[in-house]
């Protein structure tokens, strides 16, 4: 694999990672917290209605996890394609 195709593949994999993580980002906040909030509120999570919990708590926890998953996956991807920093 020459350097140019390798770089292209790296970028494509990067975009795939971004796309899947941003999809989750959209679903937990705009999806669960706003669009589907009424439906989810029928479900109880302890003293919380689930939709409300996502809007004021769950989405934020998910954001934190998403960034760390991204950090981990990109670290591995950088090494795999030998573009990491030392």
């Amino acid at each position: 694999m020459d350097q140019n195709t390798s770089k292209k593949l790296y970028w494509r994999k990067n975009l795939q990672t971004l796309f899947s993580l941003l999809l989750i980002w959209f679903v937990v906040s705009f999806g669960f917290g706003i669009i589907l909030v009424e439906y989810l509120n029928a479900i109880k999570l302890g003293g919380f209605k689930l939709g409300f919990w996502f809007a004021q708590q769950g989405s934020i926890y998910s954001f934190v996890i998403l960034i760390f998953v991204y950090v981990y996956r990109m670290d591995r991807l950088d090494k795999e394609f030998d573009v990491n920093e030392n």
């Binding site: 941003l22 980002w25 917290g33 809007a55 989405s59 934020i60 954001f63």
Partner: peptide, 8 residues
């Protein structure tokens, strides 16, 4: 959500 989601 707005002031945290931006960090993603």
């Amino acid at each position: 959500m707005g002031w945290t989601g931006g960090y993603v």
